[in-house]
């Protein structure tokens, strides 16, 4: 490589943002879910600080309902890169009586994560939390700034966001506030997948086609392998060849029928597909304003 003119502008922007976080905040943390977006963030952070190590820890808010492949992957990545990993468990918040487990057909721990996250932010006094949210995911996210200020209660004041001009990022905050930082704001799902391909980034196996015991509900395919997703008896279990497009809490992440077993065919599939990624997430279908409401409460 002779010069840097062919470097992806989105990658340059993300590296710039990572460096601003390290420079402007005292205790940043990278929120790591084990999904492809947060794995991409880790690579971008590596690039931003190389040959030094990433100057902040990763934190995983574990719902206890993760795909086992994700957890294995997480632990291996952290070890290989010599990173610090903090894990906080939603189960502990439930045991402490801070949140109440949902019940019924659509029970999910996805919403409960918020309490665990806010408690962890307070425990470690994190002032900046880097996340992998993208503006193309959902219409309320399309409104998000790159540095998004949250008040003491972790809340997003969506009607009163700071202007964000040129690429100048204002990280000034009061004690108790924190900033959510989204370095890949301007990436689309296809941008992320293409980057994973180009960079040869390893991702958990559930992103690729595999055979899985599943059942159908509301036109979506759910994993029947584990006791996490509630299933009525009449909902028939069938083995299907599927993969996951997004890896959230098992109880709200549906699979898609797919034969795409390697990165090349996944990228091709995304290119051709006409359903957006969040179409496979039941938590957004609950209501039209679901995401905005969760964000106001401090959800990522």
């Amino acid at each position: 490589m002779k010069d840097t003119s062919n470097i992806n502008p989105l990658e340059n922007e993300a590296i710039y943002i990572m460096r601003e976080v390290a420079a402007q905040f005292e205790k940043p943390v990278l929120l790591f879910s084990g999904g492809k977006d947060s794995i991409t963030l880790v690579r971008l952070a590596q690039k931003a600080f190389y040959p030094a190590k990433i100057p902040f820890p990763l934190m995983h808010i574990d719902t206890g309902h993760n795909f086992p492949e994700t957890i294995e992957f997480r632990d291996r990545l952290v070890k290989e890169l010599g990173l610090e990993l903090i894990v906080r468990n939603v189960q502990d918040s439930i045991d402490d009586g801070k949140v109440k487990e949902e019940s019924g057909r659509y029970a999910s721990r996805n919403q409960l994560q918020t309490t665990t996250l806010l408690d962890a932010i307070e425990e470690f006094k994190f002032d900046a939390c880097i996340g992998g949210a993208r503006r193309d995911e959902e219409k309320a996210r399309a409104k998000e700034r790159i540095f998004s200020v949250r008040d003491d209660f972790g809340q997003w004041d969506e009607r009163n966001q700071r202007p964000e001009l040129f690429d100048m990022l204002n990280g000034n905050i009061e004690l108790g506030q924190n900033v959510r930082v989204f370095p890949i704001s301007n990436w689309t799902e296809l941008d992320v997948w293409s980057y994973i391909q180009k960079e040869e980034i390893e991702i958990p196996s559930i992103y690729f086609a595999h055979t899985r015991a599943t059942f159908l509900r509301d036109g979506l395919i759910w994993s029947a392998d584990d006791a996490v997703v509630y299933r009525d008896e009449e909902e028939e279990v069938v083995e299907r060849i599927v993969r996951f497009r997004t890896v959230g809490d098992m109880s709200c992440t549906a699979a898609v029928l797919s034969e795409a077993s390697d990165i090349v065919s996944v990228v091709q599939e995304i290119r051709d597909s006409s359903i957006s990624e969040r179409g496979a997430r039941i938590d957004d279908k609950r209501s039209e304003a679901a995401m905005e409401k969760r964000k106001q409460q401090g959800y990522f």
Partner: peptide, 19 residues
């Protein structure tokens, strides 16, 4: 020297994030 991650380059083009 100019570095972009683990590669060395001769020229840093405008708008690139380098070391």
């Amino acid at each position: 020297e100019i570095h972009f991650y683990d590669k060395k380059v001769q020229t840093a083009s405008r708008r690139s994030s380098v070391l």
